[in-house]
Design a protein around this nucleic acid. Sequence first.
DNA 1: CGGGTTAGCATACCCTGGGTATGTGAAGGT
DNA 2: ACCTTCACATACCCAGGGTATGCTAACCCG
Lengths: 195, 195
Amino acid sequence: MTRAEQRAATRQALLTEGRRRFAADGYHAVVLADVAQAVGVTKGAAYHHFESKAGLFRAVVAEVQHELGERVAAAAETHTDPWDQLRAGCHAFLAAGHDPTVRRIVLLDAPAVLGWDEWRAMDEDSSARHLAEALTGLVEAGVIEDQPVEPLTRLLSGAMNEAALWLARSPGPHALAQTERALDSLLLGLRVQRS
Amino acid sequence: MTRAEQRAATRQALLTEGRRRFAADGYHAVVLADVAQAVGVTKGAAYHHFESKAGLFRAVVAEVQHELGERVAAAAETHTDPWDQLRAGCHAFLAAGHDPTVRRIVLLDAPAVLGWDEWRAMDEDSSARHLAEALTGLVEAGVIEDQPVEPLTRLLSGAMNEAALWLARSPGPHALAQTERALDSLLLGLRVQRS
DNA sequence: CGGGTTAGCATACCCTGGGTATGTGAAGGT
DNA sequence: ACCTTCACATACCCAGGGTATGCTAACCCG
């Protein structure tokens, strides 16, 4: 095996194992040496690939957020009408809270570990950007009231983040459907009133 | 000074100094021995009053959340109409994000340090309860569509949490007003449509 | 009011775990 | 064939959370 291949393999193994443990135990409870040992290397190897424990975590967060963004975008693209796309994307995001990886890593630990500013920047690059673009499109199409998109994006993004966290803890089978309907109601308030 | 007084004084001093540092530097960067030293005692005293560093943090979170709840409730009570009360409470919450104590301690670190379940339980006791009660009242009064209140509470609570965090970072003087208007639009979607 | 008890701390210590400095051997270049 | 580089391993430092124990002044009780 060539050196570049070996390097890539070790890095990916660390990422995968780190992701598993961060999701299962939370950032603080994960010890870097154990992650390395589980992969078959030592702590030194981990520090050769990532500048710190937070660095490994950052890389994991980026990976998970990227996948989440893809998932949301894919759900949106099953529709053609922009309004339906928005709803589909939102519903897909709500469902993502059940994934412990998204829940624990992206929604719970990342803001505290990486700081809110960096977390927001990463969120922007992956999923929140899609939301902002969808809203911008709907404003330009005259579907929702003309207004600055950014406050709206933050409100909706936060609403879905928290609802996703809550859904993962609510036992009832109707919770998801109820939350989707409540979110739809909220979104309806944005549409231009023609009455 | 009697023993009970001394005990209460030391405990309160630790709480106050801890609150200052947790807000300024974040949970992880605060070292317990420094908090104690700043108060004029040693680490042993801190462990006599709180079972751990997280224990002190928990007490601080409870204090800050309680004050926040009072602030929101007070803002709501300046109005008599239930709908106006809801809006006033929401607006007060949005403004609270500028307080670094609320921002850093309650919104950023608390969920990660105490865990989401405990954070949610504490949030429920202080501020979210008011929101749920207001929404329940509006449902019973027939102002907003009949629906389960809990998903709605989570959506709105999350929306305001995130928006409050964002507002503390957005420079423009119009951001708060814009967010308030966007939130009002969302809330309007909940009202029974009579057309 | 004096002896015992308790409680509010201080002191000294343990030990996990993040971070670093340096060594090593094999892959890759010349 | 020799030298360089790089992907790690090894050994170490030390900050900081947690604990076990000691000390002294406040409280209780006869």
